[in-house]
Design a protein around this nucleic acid. Sequence first.
RNA 1: GGGCCGUUAGCUCAAUUAGGCAGAGCACCUGACUCUUAAUCAGUAGGUUGAAGGUUCGAUUCCUUCACGGCCCA
Length: 496
Amino acid sequence: MSKKNDVIEKRKEKIQTLKESGIELFPNDYKVSHTVKDIKDLVENESAEIAEDASYSVAGRIMAVNRFGKSAFIRFNDRSGQLQAYIRTDIVGDDTYTLFKKLDIGDFVGMTGTMFKTKTGEWSLLANSLQLISKATRPLPEKFHGLKDPEKRYRQRYLDLIMNADVRELFIKRSQLVQAIRMFLLGRDFLEVETPMMQPLPGGADAKPFKTYHNSLSMDLFLRIAPELYLKRLVTGGFERVFEINRSFRNEGISTQHNPEFTMLEFYQAYATYEDLMNLTEELFQSLALSIAGAMDFEYQGVQIKFSGSWKRLPLLESLEKIAGVDPSLFSQKDELMNFALSKGISFGNRSEDAMGVGKIMTKIFDALVEPKLIQPTFITGYPVEVSPLSRRNKENPELTDRFELFIAGREIANGFSELNDPEDQKNRFLHQLENKEAGDETPQIIDDDYIRALEYGMPPTAGEGIGIDRLAMLLTDSASIRDVILFPHMKPTDK
RNA sequence: GGGCCGUUAGCUCAAUUAGGCAGAGCACCUGACUCUUAAUCAGUAGGUUGAAGGUUCGAUUCCUUCACGGCCCA
């Protein structure tokens, strides 16, 4: 009443008159015979006579209307695409045309008709019947500029999907990416499994967990930060090749690279080494680039990324020397190394000095000075034991591990290693982490006794890897922010 | 947590170096039009300028605080 000119109020008035004239606003009996794409394929491939003679029943959302008194063109979308329809009073009849005139952009309609070519040569549906399938109360954003406001696009993703065809395509690609990974691994005799997302002890990574509480068990549970320790229990149990594609949760900052819940692939292969996994990763990524980005070499944010060929493999220490300019003699001198880091403006937060070994300092330097420069796919190998509590020691140098991380476009995409399957060494590594906790480590692991027990029953030599699916989707869809590849990114609630 | 930027009609954006009646396109509403496709033509209507406070005769504009968002840094 107070807002007579409000668009939504106007629509509600219109809806009232539709109701009063006996029109069902939300019927559920319309039968679709073809999608828009079905019809387009048919008229392109069949002879014109066959295409024009056939009758098609389609349904979709009205996206645009051009009225001409007693006829009108409309554009409508279904899941497969957009089609134009032509509606004429002399064909659909006065009653239907009167109803049609009351419809709005955003409404769903069902139409039956034949196909014809307009003067400009566009295949269009000549409707001989039309009915309302679902009424829209709210108006859609403007047709030409669409919905641009990033906040609204994230908060109301359904609107983004309605208005922006490229967004719709991006999320279809993401789905195809996950499916392609699944097929790749199933084709190599991996078994897809599901392990707990709520864990009594949050293990398998160095990160802050979300905490929750189970009422009837009267116990704290943590949303998992990684599925790793459960997947390796399965390898112990005899599932020699397993994988899981699902969410992990980390209670840390939100940025263009981080969402509190993110999708990770983890897979474990018995009798394989980290070197086998690097080979497998190359093969996997190359096939994914081909199918999702359309080519093995593609552009990401203006930079050409080359997946073809074999990828560079560079030991961590060598990368520090060659790219960060660290004198190798500092690798064994903690204080000197720390001074080098500080001189480069690297800060260490409030971690105490005791908790920072040479290995942690090295990875800090790496993160700041090397990682951003690794644009083309690069495997960094040989991480210190100190920062690799679940990795197997290297045979020649037991202070390093048989581990790699994969970097592309200056970001970590994957992390893999030959698994530590010696229960005694594993227990000592856990204990060492516990000591660090008391020395002030921010995000300690807690000793998982059952995991140790599982290793004591014997786990075959195994290599495992985790791949960040969101970041991989960003790469292959040329997206700048992780929010652009997550359907519903987390946002602060608003008052309204 | 810090820095920079933003928030104006349903949507996309304006508002003149320095404060002076808040505008346009699309959408909506009324009318005309049976091949348009950002249809066209004529007309109408639409606003607590993110919130609160301050300066001022007067604030979208200047100041403060807050909320939400974007980018960068930590």
